[in-house]
Structure formats: structure tokens, C-alpha cells
Amino acid sequence: MRKLAHMAAFVVSGVGVTSGMALADPLPSWNDTDAKTRIISFVEAVTDPASEDYVTPADRIATFDNDGTLWAEQPVYFQLIFAVDQVAKLAEQDPSILTSDALRAAAAGDYEALAATGKEGLIEVLAASHTEVSLYQFQQDVAAWLAEARHPKTGLRYDEMTYQPMLELLRYLRDEGFATYIVSGGGIQFMRVFAEDAYGIPPQQVIGSSITSTYEVVDGVPVIMKGAELFFNDDKAGKPIGIMHHIGKQPILAGGNSDGDFEMLEFSTSGEGARLGLYVHHTDAEREWAYDREGHIGVLNRGLDEGPDRGWLIVDMAQDWSKVFANTKAE
């Protein structure tokens, strides 16, 4: 998988210029609105040793949801698109696997018919594409899919559907001594395939949902085999649990985009000291999609209702971002 060449263009923007001159803009794709001001003020406060809000580098933990926060999530979660594509590929090799309405709908790429099969049908499709395979083979399958598949609206690779302003925020935080983590309801092994190339976040700093696995020795080679049962659901209240299980420290910054992230923001912004919670609000129907309270994905109700009173930052994509996707062809 290719490295993040598109990030190189703005890395220099985080480097200070000669003494006595103004520093370059750390968030060039953010408009000069309150959102940008609040983010920069927060980072400056927690990284300045003279500030009463100073936080030592070891405790500068920032966690972010993935779907809808770091990359797009429409028309459906990209991991589900991968699963549907995998079922179609498997069916070409062996049509006998199509033993249910859900699998037949997936093989045909009929998302409406698949949705009609309900949660059980979605689980069946995910199981057919994600389980009873070695972890190595699964990761190879994901990498191959990312290299070949294209988004139906933009024509971009799915790992090019990342948000430029959020890439800048991740880089800015790391430049200022933060450790950045993904904490997502998506599959942990799915995200670990692309997280480092896409976001600069290494696999060990990716937290997600997982299924059971087993250790086996096949032809003398130790392998991890992916099972079929849910092991951990990293969504809603599961996110703080996952954070403490994997990181062992409370974040001081957390970002999400839906009510599935509410508990992570609530947990991260509780307690003493400077803390920041932010929601990416999808308000840009022209450059991306506009959605929040209604819909099948990325629903945001409680966050909009309670977030402002809790001091959380609601990032208005249409107003606060001068650019949406890292790859300009998408706009």
C-alpha cells in the first residue's frame, strides 16, 4: 500500500519559520472560525509549560472515531462494502455458498435487498467475508480490495476518502507531543491494514471491534485464525472500556461524529484540567453529504442536543472546512 504522499505537501506547514516571524498555519484547510481558534488555543494551553493547563507529553492522549470522523461513511460503512464485494468474489469461485437471501443480495450488490434481511443478514454477510480465514489472508484481502475498489460517487479509492482537515489535526497534535489513537466501531483488523498509511497512526494505536480468534499451527506455521463470534463491540459505552483496556489512560481530546461516540467524548472530557471534545457535523451536501438526526448511518441527536452545553465543539463541515477530502479530485 502506498505511503501518504499527499501528506507531504503540508508537513512543512507545521514547522516554525525563522525567529521573530509568525508561525505557519498548523491547520491550513480549516477556515478562520471559532472551531479553528478553539482547537489551537486548547493545544497551545496544554503544551505550554507556563500554562496552568499544561499537560505532560505522556498524558497528551487524543482519540478519534474513524467512520464519518476521519474518512467518509456514505452510502454505507466502507467495511460493509468490502464484505459485500468479498461475498461476490467468493460466489464467483463457488456459487454454492449463496445459501440465503442475504448472501444472494450481497453477491448481486443489492444493498436494498440486503438491508431488508435485517441485522441477521448483515451479520451473515460479515461472517462469510471475515471469518474462518487466517489473519494474514484477511489483511491481504483488505489490502487488495483497497487497491482496486472505487467509491461509487467520487471514483476514489476508499482510503483516499479521508478528510484533509482531520489529517492536518492529527499531524498538528503529533507535532505537539500528542499520541493519536483510532477508537472505532469498525473492525480492528480491518482498520489496521490502512491506518498507518492513511493517518500516520500505527496498528498498535488502533482500537476497534473484534471477533474471536484462535492460535493454530498449519503445516508447521503458526497462524491466527479469525473466528465467527463477536469478542468486543467498540461502540458507545464500549469505547471508554476499549480505551482503558488498550491505552490505560484517559484521553484529554476526543473526536467523533455520531451518538455512537457520545460516551467516548463524555469520558474524555470529564475530570480536572483542560479537555476538548469535538463532533464533526456533516452539513456539506455539495462537497460531501448532509446528515445528522435521521438516516441509516452516522445518526447524531444526543451530541447536537447536549454537546454545546457540555462545552464540546461542533465542527460545521460546510462552514469550518475550506477543503473536505485529502484528494482534491473528490471536490
Rank of each mutant, 00 (worst) to 15 (best):
A5L: 12
F10H: 09
G14F: 01
A22S: 15
W30L: 03
D34P: 04
A45P: 04
T47G: 04
A50G: 14
T63E: 05
D67R: 12
W71Y: 11
E73D: 10
E73C: 08
Y77V: 12
L80G: 09
V87E: 05
V87P: 03
R104P: 02
A106T: 01
A108L: 07
E112M: 05
A115H: 11
A116G: 12
T117E: 04
K119M: 15
E124Q: 11
V125T: 10
L126N: 05
V133I: 14
L135K: 13
L135Q: 09
Y136W: 13
D141H: 11
A144V: 02
W145D: 06
E148Q: 10
E148R: 12
H151K: 10
H151P: 15
K153P: 04
M161R: 07
M161E: 08
Q164G: 02
P165T: 00
P165H: 01
E168P: 03
R171E: 14
F178Y: 11
A179P: 00
I182W: 06
G186W: 12
M191L: 10
A195L: 08
E196C: 05
A198I: 02
I207A: 13
G208S: 10
S210R: 13
V217H: 07
V218R: 06
G220A: 15
P222R: 03
E229A: 13
D234S: 08
D235G: 05
D235M: 09
P240E: 06
G242D: 04
M244V: 08
L253K: 03
D261G: 02
F267R: 00
L278R: 05
R287M: 02
E288T: 14
E288R: 07
R293P: 07
R302C: 12
E306D: 15
D316Y: 15
D320I: 00
W321N: 01
